[in-house]
Amino acid sequence: PGRHRRPDRSRAAAKGATAGERRTADRLLLAHPLVTPDGPHGAGFPLILRHADWLTERFGELLGYPLTVGPAHARLHKAPLADRAVPGFGPDGYAALVLALGAIADRRVPDLERPEVPALLTDWQVATAGPDGGLALDRELARALLAAPAPPAAAPAGIPALAVRRLLAENPVVLTDELAAPERAWLLGRLTAEAELFADFLGLEAEIRAEGMALLDPADELSDLADGPLARTALLVAERLVEELRPLPEEAAPPAVLVPDALIDGTLGDVTDDYGLPEQPECDYLADRTALRRDVLGLLHRMQLIAPAGRNWVLRAPAARYAPQAELHPAPGGGRHSRND
């Protein structure tokens, strides 16, 4: 009976909508671990509230990240990453930030002498511009940020899944030869399963190579590094280093190759001759080429395209995958720093 009736698709549609909402919330929290209703990503806050229990369970199960959700904030407590501190913050800056949060939570006047502290408090919506031109301070949010649990610095011993999944979620690529033996064995045995898991969890597409695994974002939203003029200069430098150091077709490709200092300097000179110096408000690279070299290499290191080797640098295998082809038209006569006529 009922064979002539149209199939009921409402349940499947509702299930698909729920999965889409949860994936949107997952991606938002991973990219922006603190979300408030009035902040720059406040449009996604209702989704986090609606699926708070599911999100809390899922982040804890897959990544070991605690999630706290209150009426006016959601915070994902991610494990710290090497070389990924808040820009401009050293130990003194972090200490000043904690003291400022404590003062706000206790209704005391915070010390905001260090310029990076009020800037970050504003970004976090703890401090907002008041009608009189001063700062309105959110005592409840400051208290919540201080009281929230901190994640472990590393995944618990004996649980390679958490350690590897954190690397996959937070880094451009994971190379198997750089993993500890238990983690490497775990990942090699679960490449397809983990690719499917991250596709469902975050909408990411896996690229599996002999050297390791990368998760790519088709929407190009989740990167917090490869954006802006400095990043474009850095990726152009990587592309030219790959051209210079790529092995011949009959040669085996090593996981990393030493980059001579002279080649770095010459390549950087070529790129800036061809495309100009990157514009950074806080840096005058025209007057300080040493700072440009430092910042370009530092960014490539955080992208994991190069790595330090004593006092030198090595170019890692993923650089050949991520190096872009320039879309700009270089000026004629470039290349005078590192290429022979």
Results as ranks from 00 to 15, higher is better:
residue 221 E to T: 14
residue 41 H to E: 15
residue 112 L to I: 14
residue 284 D to G: 02
residue 309 A to M: 11
residue 106 D to S: 13
residue 221 E to G: 09
residue 13 A to C: 05
residue 253 A to I: 13
residue 209 R to A: 11
residue 324 P to W: 08
residue 253 A to K: 05
residue 295 D to R: 03
residue 321 R to L: 14
residue 95 A to L: 07
residue 49 L to H: 01
residue 94 Y to F: 06
residue 281 P to S: 04
residue 309 A to W: 10
residue 185 A to D: 14
residue 31 A to N: 05
residue 186 W to Q: 07
residue 101 L to P: 13
residue 184 R to I: 11
residue 259 V to E: 11
residue 114 R to E: 15
residue 238 A to W: 08
residue 180 A to E: 15
residue 243 E to V: 12
residue 191 L to C: 13
residue 3 R to L: 07
residue 92 D to G: 09
residue 215 L to T: 08
residue 144 A to C: 09
residue 153 A to R: 01
residue 35 V to K: 00
residue 158 G to Y: 09
residue 234 A to R: 08
residue 28 L to P: 08
residue 53 D to F: 00
residue 333 G to H: 01
residue 112 L to N: 10
residue 7 P to G: 04
residue 51 H to T: 06
residue 14 A to D: 15
residue 68 T to C: 06
residue 8 D to Y: 03
residue 218 P to W: 05
residue 137 L to N: 02
residue 258 L to K: 00
residue 191 L to M: 12
residue 293 R to G: 10
residue 130 G to F: 07
residue 56 T to K: 02
residue 50 R to L: 08
residue 105 A to T: 09
residue 130 G to Q: 04
residue 32 H to L: 04
residue 252 A to I: 12
residue 165 R to Q: 10
residue 155 A to M: 02
residue 313 W to P: 06
residue 232 R to V: 15
residue 90 G to D: 14
residue 218 P to Y: 06
residue 257 V to Y: 00
residue 297 L to Y: 11
residue 75 R to W: 12
residue 116 E to T: 14
residue 312 N to R: 13
residue 249 P to S: 03
residue 68 T to L: 02
residue 260 P to S: 05
residue 287 A to Q: 12
residue 237 V to F: 02
residue 27 R to A: 13
residue 276 G to F: 01
residue 96 A to H: 07
residue 256 A to S: 15
residue 303 M to V: 11
residue 180 A to C: 03
residue 244 E to D: 14
residue 162 L to E: 12
residue 61 E to M: 00
residue 210 A to I: 11
residue 60 G to F: 00
residue 75 R to H: 15
residue 171 N to G: 13
residue 210 A to F: 09
residue 218 P to V: 07
residue 78 K to F: 03
residue 12 A to P: 11
residue 253 A to F: 04
residue 209 R to F: 08
residue 173 V to K: 02
residue 10 S to M: 06
residue 119 A to R: 07
residue 110 P to E: 10
residue 198 F to T: 11
residue 51 H to Q: 09
residue 118 P to F: 03
residue 217 D to I: 03
residue 205 E to M: 05
residue 22 R to C: 09
residue 53 D to R: 01
residue 324 P to R: 06
residue 54 W to K: 07
residue 148 A to C: 06
residue 280 Q to R: 04
residue 159 I to Y: 04
residue 312 N to D: 15
residue 56 T to E: 13
residue 126 V to I: 08
residue 133 G to K: 00
residue 22 R to D: 12
residue 168 L to A: 05
residue 183 E to L: 00
residue 109 V to L: 01
residue 142 A to V: 10
residue 117 V to H: 03
residue 186 W to C: 06
residue 298 G to K: 01
residue 167 L to H: 11
residue 281 P to Q: 05
residue 37 P to C: 05
residue 81 L to P: 02
residue 13 A to E: 15
residue 269 G to T: 07
residue 265 D to Q: 10
residue 230 L to Y: 12
residue 189 G to K: 00
residue 130 G to R: 01
residue 288 D to A: 10
residue 8 D to H: 01
residue 254 P to V: 05
residue 27 R to P: 13
residue 330 P to M: 07
residue 286 L to H: 14
residue 75 R to S: 14
residue 204 L to H: 02
residue 220 D to Q: 10
residue 214 A to N: 02
